[in-house]
Design a protein around this nucleic acid. Sequence first.
DNA 1: GATTAAGCGAGACGGTACGTCACGTCTTCCG
DNA 2: CGGAAGACGTGACGTACCGTCTCGCTTAATC
Lengths: 212, 212, 212, 212
Amino acid sequence: MTDHPDLAATEAARPQRPRSVRARKAVLDATNELLGEGGLPVATIDAISARSGVSKATIYKHWPSRTAVAAEAFGLRMPSALPLPDTGSARGDFTTQVRLVSEFYASPAGTVFAQLLAASVTDAEAAHFFRTFFLAGRRQAIAELWQRSKDRGEVRSDVDVEVAQDVLFGPLIFRLLSGHAPLTEEQAAQIADAALHGLLTEAGGNGAVGSA
Amino acid sequence: MTDHPDLAATEAARPQRPRSVRARKAVLDATNELLGEGGLPVATIDAISARSGVSKATIYKHWPSRTAVAAEAFGLRMPSALPLPDTGSARGDFTTQVRLVSEFYASPAGTVFAQLLAASVTDAEAAHFFRTFFLAGRRQAIAELWQRSKDRGEVRSDVDVEVAQDVLFGPLIFRLLSGHAPLTEEQAAQIADAALHGLLTEAGGNGAVGSA
Amino acid sequence: MTDHPDLAATEAARPQRPRSVRARKAVLDATNELLGEGGLPVATIDAISARSGVSKATIYKHWPSRTAVAAEAFGLRMPSALPLPDTGSARGDFTTQVRLVSEFYASPAGTVFAQLLAASVTDAEAAHFFRTFFLAGRRQAIAELWQRSKDRGEVRSDVDVEVAQDVLFGPLIFRLLSGHAPLTEEQAAQIADAALHGLLTEAGGNGAVGSA
Amino acid sequence: MTDHPDLAATEAARPQRPRSVRARKAVLDATNELLGEGGLPVATIDAISARSGVSKATIYKHWPSRTAVAAEAFGLRMPSALPLPDTGSARGDFTTQVRLVSEFYASPAGTVFAQLLAASVTDAEAAHFFRTFFLAGRRQAIAELWQRSKDRGEVRSDVDVEVAQDVLFGPLIFRLLSGHAPLTEEQAAQIADAALHGLLTEAGGNGAVGSA
DNA sequence: GATTAAGCGAGACGGTACGTCACGTCTTCCG
DNA sequence: CGGAAGACGTGACGTACCGTCTCGCTTAATC
């Protein structure tokens, strides 16, 4: 939550006891356990409360909804999950990344991701937590990749980084959610190829693949 | 409830018509009303039952879940909503289509679409209905557009139609669901441009834009 | 719980028995058990629901509050608890009745009575149930006693039956609630004597005691 | 909250005054405010703490329960509320007193009185505070009235003062709590008449009213 | 036409989870 | 070092919807 720094500052000025770290951790740990066991549907507030030993009332003091708890919990264990590739070329990096993300989506964790994204649709508070604790980190990392490639002149400079990200990963998201087509490695490669064809410059290796 | 008189009159003319037909129609009409008023969260089985005059038990005889009802109801009013463009060129057709779909997603109906897609994640039965009554029609139409363009040699023949669809519309879906970026006409144009750059041949007008 | 087998048997024989009757009975029985075990504080809706096997939602469909349930349950087992005396004289009848009521108040059931009366103060709905299911029956019976005595000319005809009842039993209630003085048989006799002195005629035996 | 500046100013003059005294006063004042605004249900510990600026922990050091706080607070403002009558005769004094008490019960403060009495039923600690800070003063005053009348020979010497009090005021209490009959001036007069008839001697004016 | 069995409305029901409230205890830190 | 500020576990609250069920009424197909 971006508010935390502010709050910390406010609390520092006001002689307030900082909110318990222990309770927060217990809740997030228990939530991650539950997400692993049965996904979002199983991570009810009652279950989280029972598993963590933290009361429902306290949970609601820290998070606006169960989805917000799940979003934060899920986001916290992600940073290590998807290390950025560095193959030496933009095409290699992004192709690898698309494949990795595709694999992630196809895994049990991907199901949870989809459930959280779905929950964000009808829960604005949760959406905020989801973007903050999960998407923000991911997108930040991809943005670095994009900038690196841009510096090398491998990607189209007239394409916005946000647009690029959506073109690369939106197709995977779409498949993940609607299930209308599989998320195999083969499919991921095809998607990456088509998308990158629209994003790379000739220096990025686009000419060769071109309008074959 | 207000449908009853009308329906009664209609049924009076055809006294032999099976009641199940009337019940189905009443349910779907009521559901569409509710979806229009408050989206999926408001279209509960209880509300649909009350509004339509069809008992919950009967509803469950026809559909596996409330999301399935909503998916079918929503799908039924879609065919007329998005007529296919015919601008004469693949670039024009797809750009127009992406813009139209983007507008649709940004509208109230788009919210319902997102809610249904989200619900499909945790409800396999509903997912089936969603794909059958909503996605299938859309994707069929787009596939025709693709085939037409392919015959003209305007699109890359080595790109699967499914992949093409996901690359074109996946980015929109991603934005719709997570809300991390807006769905304006300007953004839609950028997305269409980037995606099409990866899909069209030189004959499709790609050369000019190319490795700029 | 123990009722279930019996009910099952009963239901097997008469499968048409309305479910609501069974649920009501189960709730009232469970409530009376709980009242007997720990009084009103123990008869929570959750406990009643768990004990009776009837869901909370169903309980709330039948009663407005837990106090209302308790009032009805408690009232149902009262009719047989305090049979009206018939000693042949008004003085005897009322003295006996005051003693019996005093004993009742001093018993565990009296505690529950006090708790219900107390709850009525802040819960208008419960007050209605309390008056209907408990007080009404009691007051009706006493009114008959009063009328009988009045016909014999043993009680002051200018005293309202309601006033008479309150003068006779109000003192007991006061002691029961505030606990400022005991509710022994001796005390009950003194109260009855003082109160009756103000209610009986000379024909009712008041002259002898009179202005002693 | 609004008391703080005033209190601070008051205390500034006497800086050495024990803080606990200030805390007690602040709590009792805040409680009386709350009792006046919404009765016992509103005078929660949290509300009292917030209103008075005294922490919950400190409140619990001085009183065993919120009802005890309320009982003491309520009792403190009572002495001035019901001055004892002196009409010259026992009948006049008691009739007046019954009327005054009846009016009090029928007032908003009477509701609070009832709530406190009710709370005493299930809260022994609170009952003690209630008797100490409210009932004791009242009963002491009435006892004086009784003694005065007894010295004049206007009341039956064989009736215990406790019994007399209960016969006079118990009926009012009963009505106040159960609400089965109104607490109008007319009703108070009838109750006083019936009760006094059982308590006064002929010298107290009982003969005249007698078995009319 | 009369009979009968299915379809249906109405909604009661058990169940799960919700989000809230007040309690009384406990911890932190200020004056 | 007493006390404010308030976090916390606990237990109960009353509500919402779920999906199943029972009950009678209606009605279509059969006799």
